[in-house]
Simulated assay, not measured.
Amino acid sequence: MNLLNSNSEAAILGIGTALPVHSIAQSDVAQLIASSLQDHPDLARFARRIFKSCGVETRYTCDDSYLGSAEGCRYLLSGDQSSIPTTEERMKKYQQEALPLGLAAAEKALSDAGQSPGDITHLITVSCTGQYLPGLDVMLIRQLGLSPRVNRLPLIFQGCAAGLKAIQMARDVVQGAPGSRVLVVCVELCTLHFQPAKEREALFAASFFGDGASACVIGAPESRHHHYLSLGSGYSVLLPDSTEDMTWEVGNTGYDLYLSPRIPKLLGTHLESELGVLLGNDKLPELWAIHPGGRGIVDSVQNVMNLSDQQTGYSREILRTAGNLSSVTIMFVLQAMRLDMKAQEGALKEGVAMAFGPGLTAELMRFTYVPAYSPSVKEQDHAVL
């Protein structure tokens, strides 16, 4: 099939981000988890080491129980396991906390794009850390004052890649239905699914995830729009021999995540050829929005594509200051990049965005930072898949 190509331009016109009020230093999280492992000194030592080296300094959580002692944190109990929150309890906490965060991000995105709630024709909601019905989409329509006839497209349980997948879905909507305005809202409360550590893999997964929300408005740019991201071609690909390397299953005490240590190597093996499909014969772009799924993932992409520290700096900074926010994270990276370009009064620049999730799935997309409205921003035809 051909990569998407259309004469109807679609762009990210505005972005909004939101974080919970509770921030916690990575060193404090490491101490909290190590304290819960007093009967397992080898695991405690591993926790301190991996938490120190994963590239995270600060994370955010919707649950203040992480701010106290190990004895007061029900998610990390080392003794009696009977009071660990059930999946039902975690979902109730999600239902309580997800809407305010999503609402804050959505309102910022609408304001940034200069759009009113009545302009929105489609709403894509994204989350893999909680589910309930009527869902986040219905609640956002009511709270934001969107039309009750808005086309709702919930995208659930797709992991870290889902934020970029939603952006590409919104691009397709705009290009297929000119005049559409799509609001994308991602909310992830990853800390609700922390588990008492039983093995090193669980500690690795717990070392960098945090909570947050992001949103964006996607539509055709107009003369009043500036500093937007014009969306080019892109696609989703399943990488070979990687089905078991990232799994996310519903358990009795929350969702159980497994991340294989092979993931950075797998990306290093397959990503260069996939980017060749995406870019064709074009030169490598200047801007790189890499989902910081972990320090090793950013390292792998940087090494394979021979990128500079400056080019991976946006991703590393988001990882450092907020951690991996699952599907939410890619918009944090794009917003940091966009604001930096604006502050530098930068010229038009080409870029690539990428995010990774279970499958092992890679979402890849071209984009262009446009400082001032330019109806001539078009993309050339590219390779065939």
Rank of each mutant, 00 (worst) to 15 (best):
Arg295Ile: 15
Phe46Arg: 00
Asp299Ala: 14
Leu259Pro: 02
Leu192Val: 13
Tyr258Lys: 04
Val187Glu: 06
Ala355Gln: 03
Glu199Ser: 10
Ala109Tyr: 00
Cys190Tyr: 10
Leu287Cys: 09
Leu239Thr: 05
Ile297Met: 11
Gln131Lys: 13
Met305Leu: 15
Arg181His: 15
Ile120Gly: 11
Ile290Cys: 02
Ala383Val: 12
Asp340Ile: 02
Arg142Thr: 14
Ser374Gln: 15
Asp119His: 07
Ala25Ile: 09
Arg181Ser: 15
Glu249Met: 09
Leu364Met: 01
Glu286Thr: 08
Gly102Gln: 02
Lys52Pro: 01
Lys342Leu: 07
Ile218Met: 13
Pro375His: 11
Val328Ile: 10
Ile290Trp: 01
Cys54Asp: 12
Leu155Thr: 04
Ile141Cys: 15
Ser147Asp: 13
Leu385Asp: 06
Ser327Glu: 04
Leu287Trp: 08
Ala170Ser: 06
Cys54Arg: 08
Lys378Leu: 06
Arg295Ala: 15
Leu164Met: 01
Leu133Asp: 02
Asp137Gly: 04
Ala202Gln: 13
Asp28Gly: 03
Thr368Gly: 09
Asp28Phe: 03
Arg200Leu: 13
Tyr373Ile: 13
His227Ala: 10
Arg171Ala: 07
Gly14Lys: 00
Val173Leu: 10
Leu267His: 00
Ile263Gln: 01
Glu89Asp: 14
Val328Pro: 02
Glu345His: 11
Ser83Pro: 12
Ser374Phe: 03
Ala18Phe: 08
Ile50Ser: 00
Glu272Leu: 15
Gly14Leu: 08
Thr243Asn: 00
Gln335Ser: 12
Ser236Met: 13
Leu348Thr: 13
Gln95Glu: 14
Asn7Ala: 04
Leu32Asp: 06
His40Tyr: 10
Phe46Ser: 02
Ala353His: 01
Gly72Ile: 04
Gly114Ala: 09
Val328Phe: 02
Leu99Met: 14
Ala104Gln: 15
Leu279Met: 13
Arg74His: 14
Asp64Phe: 06
Tyr132Met: 05
Gly135Gln: 09
Ala197Trp: 00
Ser180Tyr: 00
Ile290His: 05
